[in-house]
Design a protein around this nucleic acid. Structure first.
Lengths: 239, 239
DNA sequence: GCGGTTTTCTAACTAGCGTTCGATATTACA
DNA sequence: TGTAATATCGAACGCTAGTTAGAAAACCGC
């Protein structure tokens, strides 16, 4: 686990991709997907080190050894899972924000981006949630690549927020980067406590967005969305 | 790792506490502390499963087997580390907010609480940061106890925020619990990216507090603290 | 400095991990 | 239908993990 002590004889046995054209999944590609799906789900729930290749294999309907036909190592699996997750969220948020079109203000676009982020994190997307949870657990060697992907996603948000600022919807003295860190940090942390079966992701995003835009202090206009919060929010799960 | 399969023959070998009065540390108590300190530091950096008893022992200046004179299992160590960490932050924030005295408003008290939280999390307190990082990684059996401690800390913040609301410093339509989740979530997430050697914890807390209280939208008074942000905040480390 | 207690060491055990590889089953095309 | 390519199995290997227990060392009051 610590370090890859022997120079990895990478994929020494794996044969090249069959079925070169963009045909139906094909047996190999299908098994690959099943392995990745199983791994993402287990990683998300158990973390990297506590997830076993034998568990992954079982969930994918095969034996542990068979995994090595498709992947050269456990590291290679987590690498692909995390990369997929980050690309997923990037595309989703990009699309979501763009498709909000010109008719809506940045405040609404940002809220939709937050909903997309929370939704993929909490209800869909074991790949993305694996990324968020596992980044600090993966072997050092994989870090730089995934740090880069994270930064790319961060820049996407910076861009949105900066545009909002230039459009006059965010005060000019607000620093974009720490603001983004703050917002995404709060969203990512929901993994630790938010149960989407009990609360509504949309409601939470709306409330948070209202706090961030309007602030919580008492003064003039009060236009925080009057969301009906499930009374149980102080319930069993808490931080 | 999965579950404690054999009914724990708890501390079958450990003898009772020596040196009953509140004297000097004593050899045993000192070794115990060294083990806990080493464990907290390693847990914080590597997580639970990737931290070895042999690593802990080495950092504490002894052999792995010797640990079992002081603790019944690895679980017992992490249990004590996490509990200590949560009690530390509770006392610290309680004291910090209380000692802000009557002369200051809630806005300032909350900011001081945030600074205390960030400070213990990021620069002091391997115990508290271990708690924050490891809660999702510890064996199921330990969870309920630590969930309870977390909830207790959450209630402390709720109380502060609710008082602020009743004192008229927070709008009445703001829901306290999700607000607290939001704020503490953002603070906890700093573990993933904030480098206290590069940035100032106080500056970050001040900026965040300004955003939360005043909001980011453009309107009347602009009183977000004009913090000088280290130009490098968009630098190598990012989300 | 002796004797019992406290603390640590040393060496081993078992379990489970990632990984390997020859044998075997399955598939797809001639 | 036969056969080469593809995909999986099954058993093993080496290693490291947490843990155990008897022997050894360190400690301490007398």
């Amino acid at each position: 686990m610590e370090l890859a002590k022997k120079a990895r004889s990478v994929s020494s046995r794996r044969k090249l991709a069959p079925r070169q054209k963009g045909k139906l999944p094909g047996k190999s590609a299908l098994s690959r997907m099943q392995i990745l799906d199983a791994a993402a789900q287990l990683f998300r729930r158990q973390g990297y080190s506590d997830t076993t290749l034998r568990q992954i294999a079982k969930a994918a309907g095969m034996q542990a050894g068979s995994i090595y036909y498709h992947f050269g190592s456990k590291d290679e699996i987590v690498d692909e899972v995390l990369a997929t997750g980050m690309k997923d969220i990037y595309k989703l948020v990009e699309k979501t924000v763009a498709s909000s079109g010109e008719e809506s203000g940045y405040r609404e676009r940002i809220e939709r981006g937050m909903v997309a982020h929370l939704d993929l994190l909490l209800t869909k997307g074991d790949y993305f949630s694996s990324n968020i949870r596992l980044y600090g657990q993966i072997p050092e060697a994989l870090r730089p690549k995934h740090l880069h992907l994270r930064q790319r996603y961060g820049r996407l948000w910076d861009q949105i927020l900066r545009e909002a600022q230039e459009a006059g919807e965010i005060r000019r003295d607000v620093k974009i980067v720490p603001l983004r860190m703050f917002i995404l940090g709060a969203l990512n942390w929901t993994m630790e406590w938010f149960d989407p079966h009990r609360y509504s992701v949309g409601d939470f995003a709306r409330h948070i967005n209202a706090v961030v835009f309007d602030g919580i202090k008492v003064d003039g206009k009060k236009d925080v969305a009057e969301v009906e919060w499930p009374a149980a929010l102080r319930g069993p799960r808490s931080r």
